[in-house]
Structure formats: C-alpha cells, structure tokens
Simulated assay, not measured.
Amino acid sequence: MHLQNSSKQTLDTQTLNNQANTQLWQTWQLFWDSHLGQAVLRAEAALLSPILEAQRGYHVLSVGACPAKPLLASCTIKHQMEWRPSFATADHTSCLITDPAHLPLPNDSMDLVLLHHSLELLARPHALLKEAARVTLPKGEILILGFNPYSLWGLARILPKSLQAKPLQVLKSARFISQNKLLDWFEFLDLKQEERQRIFHRPPCNRINILQHLEKPDQRLDKKNWPLAGIYLLRIKKRIGSPLRPELKKKSPSWLAAQPVVSPTRTSLPTQTRLKTEK
C-alpha cells in the first residue's frame, strides 16, 4: 500500500512538472517570436555554426526554450533529438516528451548535448545539468547558452512590467544563473569548461529599428568577448571516469580458479603421506 501511494505521488509530481513546463514553453514562444527573440536566435546561430560544423558523432540532444532547428542547421551530426514538455508542443517525430530532470536515455549515449536557455527556464536546473552530464559520452561536449545576469538583461528584470513590452515580461520568470555558479556545478559533476564566449551587447529592446541600427556595432563588440555582454556560451567537456555512476568491477569467468593452481611438491604433502611415500 505504501509503495502504491509513493508511486502515485511520483506520477502526480511528474504530471504537475509537465504542466508547468508546458505553460512556460508556450509563454516563452512569445519572446522568441518577437523582434528581439529573432535577433537573439540569429546571433546564437552564427556563434554556434563553426562549432557545430566541427562536431563528429551520431547523436545530438537539445533541451531548450524554443525549437532548435535554426540553431542546429549547420550541425554535421544527423540524428538530432529535441526535448518537448508535452505532445501538444511536439512538431516532429524526433521530439523527446519527458521531464528533463529524468531523461529516459542510457548512460553515455549522446555525442553532444545543447542546453539552450533551459537551465534558467526550468525549475530544477542542477538536476537537468546532472542528467545532461550522465547521458553525454566521455569526452563528449555540452554546450550551454544562457543570459548573463550581470548585463543589461539582468537589469531589465528589475524594471516594472509597465515599462516593458509584453514579449519581454517573461524575463521576470527566468532564473539567470551566473557563470561562476555554473563553474561550481561543473566541479561537482566532474565537467571541465573548455571555452567561454560572450555575445549580444544590444539592450533588451523589442523595437526593430533600434536592433537593426545597433547590429553592426554589436558584431564588432562580440569579437572582444566583453564580460558584460547579454549572452554567454560555455563549451563543456565530460571527463573520462566521471563519478556520476559507479564503475562495475569486472567479474572473472566462473571456469577460472580464484587462486592460481600450484602443483604439490614433496615438502608440501602432509606428514603421513610423505612418510608412506618414503617407505
């Protein structure tokens, strides 16, 4: 009876999480469809393009706040899976409908995992990062895109809703995670940061004329990797021998003896046997 109640509570919790994730997903699509959201996606796609062109492997998993097709367009790995919170939000057959804190994938199965603004969107970012590390192959890569809290984007979350355009109001529901905090998580999960890039210095403004006017100066600033940029990209490597799961000791075949067999010598025989032999 206790097991039935606990399993029922687990199912109820997963259902509530899926409903909350679906609502968040649908709310964030208003942002990505806006002028500012489209400008962010174009900048991120340009940043990811040379990285994805150099990738080799068989499987890619994307857990993001919007469809990843524009971001993965230049990826050389053909099998691409995308997370979705519900069947209603799935738009192709390679969508993975699940709680992102419990990915139904084997250990060490993905060559590349892309976390596109999902750590700041979902309720359990540390659990998501742990799952991403678990399913990534040793020496595989995890790419993390996030909003920098120490930028104009972080300040925009403080402004009252009356001073923000409707697509930008979703930023208040996001939990911006600093890069230093992520470094602490990487150490716990035995992940190693290989590279860090920062882009998008334009303010979080939804006016298309301002975004277009500042696009070229923004691209020049992107080359300087300024720490107060609005978006960061972290390239993470999974170390070999990660402690996310215990290594199973190899058992010797049953037909092998546990101890090496040594032929008995004359002095190793029991005393009585040795006396009979001498007679």
Rank of each mutant, 00 (worst) to 15 (best):
V40T: 12
H102G: 01
R84C: 08
L61M: 07
L71Q: 04
H79S: 14
P67V: 06
S86H: 02
D91I: 11
T98Q: 04
L48H: 06
P85A: 14
H92G: 14
S74V: 00
L115Y: 01
C66L: 11
L52H: 05
D111Y: 13
T98P: 03
L121V: 02
D108Q: 15
R84I: 08
H59F: 15
G37D: 00
D108Y: 08
D91W: 08
A46P: 00
G64S: 07
R84D: 04
L115M: 14
K69S: 11
E82S: 11
A101S: 15
T98L: 08
S74Y: 11
P104E: 15
S118L: 00
L36D: 01
I97K: 03
H79T: 04
V60P: 02
P100H: 10
V40K: 02
R84E: 10
N107W: 08
S49E: 15
R84H: 12
T93V: 10
A46T: 09
P70K: 06
N107Q: 12
P67T: 07
A39R: 07
A45W: 04
L122T: 07
A39K: 05
H79I: 09
P85T: 11
C95R: 04
P50W: 14
H102V: 01
L122P: 05
E82D: 13
H59M: 13
K78Y: 05
W83D: 05
R42P: 00
A46W: 02
L36H: 12
E53W: 06
P50I: 04
H117N: 03
L36Y: 13
L71G: 05
S118C: 02
I51L: 12
T93P: 13
E120F: 00
H102P: 01
W83N: 08
C95G: 09
H59K: 12
P50V: 02
H102E: 10
L119D: 07
I51E: 08
L119A: 00
L47F: 09
M110F: 03
L119K: 06
G57Q: 08
D108C: 04
A43L: 06
A43Q: 10
L47Q: 13
L48W: 01
D91S: 15
L61V: 02
R124V: 01
P50Y: 13
P70C: 00
L61D: 03
I97W: 12
L41N: 14
Q80D: 11
A101K: 02
D91M: 15
V113N: 05
V63P: 01
P125A: 11
P100V: 09
A46G: 04
L121G: 02
Y58G: 13
M110E: 14
L52Q: 01
M110S: 11
P125Q: 09
S118V: 00
K69H: 13
G37K: 04
H116N: 15
A45G: 06
Q38K: 09
S118Y: 08
L105M: 12
S109T: 09
D111M: 06
F87E: 15
T89G: 07
P67W: 04
A88C: 06
L36F: 14
D91L: 14
V60K: 04
V63W: 00
V40G: 03
A65M: 01
Q38R: 06
K78N: 05
R124D: 11
L72C: 07
G57L: 03
L47G: 00
P70T: 06
S74T: 09
R124K: 14
H59P: 00
P70W: 05
R42K: 14
G64I: 06
H102D: 07
L72H: 07
A90T: 08
L71P: 03
R84W: 05
A45I: 03
Q80N: 12
L115F: 10
A123N: 14
